[in-house]
């Protein structure tokens, strides 16, 4: 474990709970893409199947349980409890256009052709594009609530910190996983224009609005 990965995991945890609290407190999921949340739930479920078979540490197992539980809870709040506030008119990204190609790629490009490894690879590839429905929804509505932009900033930062973690681990532990690094780069690049807007606008107390 290194500081980049620890701060990255905490940033990820923060993002998930900022969103969960926003929905719970405001009793509304306006401006939030339910499709992205479904994809994130799929990412965690397919990635943490080894939760009971491969014990790494208490921290690792605890975080896996928290990530799965909190993301499933978010999907529940969005599609069941506060369904009336779900903005389905703007959350129209066709996620099958993500899941199918990512599923195919996981079969073709992976470290080992075993079910667990292919599912892990699928999860890594899917996570890199899972935010697209959310970014697409913001581009359609033209703006995002400030709390939603904080959520996105923390979520985008987590994988950027993981890139630093992989640089650290490469030099100090000789650890390198090309699939995770490439997908992590794609994932972080997708946030670049959002990061620019966040830093130039939200940091100065303005609302995040995309140029019309």
């Amino acid at each position: 474990m290194n500081i980049f990965r620890l701060v990255g995991d905490l940033s990820h945890l923060l993002a998930i709970f900022v969103l969960l609290l926003k929905i719970w407190k405001s009793r509304s999921c306006a401006g939030v893409s339910g499709k992205s949340q479904i994809l994130f739930a799929l990412v965690f479920i397919t990635r943490y199947l080894d939760l009971f078979t491969n014990f790494i540490s208490v921290y690792n197992s605890l975080m896996k349980v928290i990530f799965i539980a909190s993301t499933v809870a978010t999907v529940y709040l969005m599609y069941i409890k506060f369904k009336a506030t779900y903005d389905s008119n703007h959350d129209t990204f066709r996620i099958e256009f993500l899941v199918v190609p990512v599923g195919g790629l996981a079969f073709l490009v992976n470290h080992d052709f075993t079910p667990l490894e292919i599912l892990w690879t699928f999860s890594i590839y899917l996570e890199s594009v899972a935010i697209l429905p959310q970014l697409f929804m913001i581009s359609k509505t033209g703006e995002a609530e400030t709390i939603t932009s904080h959520y996105l900033f923390a979520l985008g930062s987590y994988r950027a910190l993981y890139l630093l973690n992989w640089i650290y681990r490469y030099y100090f532990e000789g650890y390198f996983d090309l699939i995770a690094v490439v997908a992590g780069c794609v994932q972080t690049i997708l946030y670049c224009d959002f990061f620019y807007l966040y830093i130039t606008k939200v940091m100065w107390g303005k609302k995040l609005s995309l140029p019309a």
């Binding site: 990965r5 995991d9 990820h12 080894d50 491969n54 790494i56 540490s57 690792n60 975080m63 896996k64 990530f67 470290h111 080992d112 892990w120 993981y162 973690n165 650890y175 996983d177 995770a180």
Partner: peptide, 10 residues
């Protein structure tokens, strides 16, 4: 190439 490292990252 099968890498034997356990998946220790989240």
């Amino acid at each position: 190439d099968k890498d034997t490292k356990a998946k220790d990252e989240l």
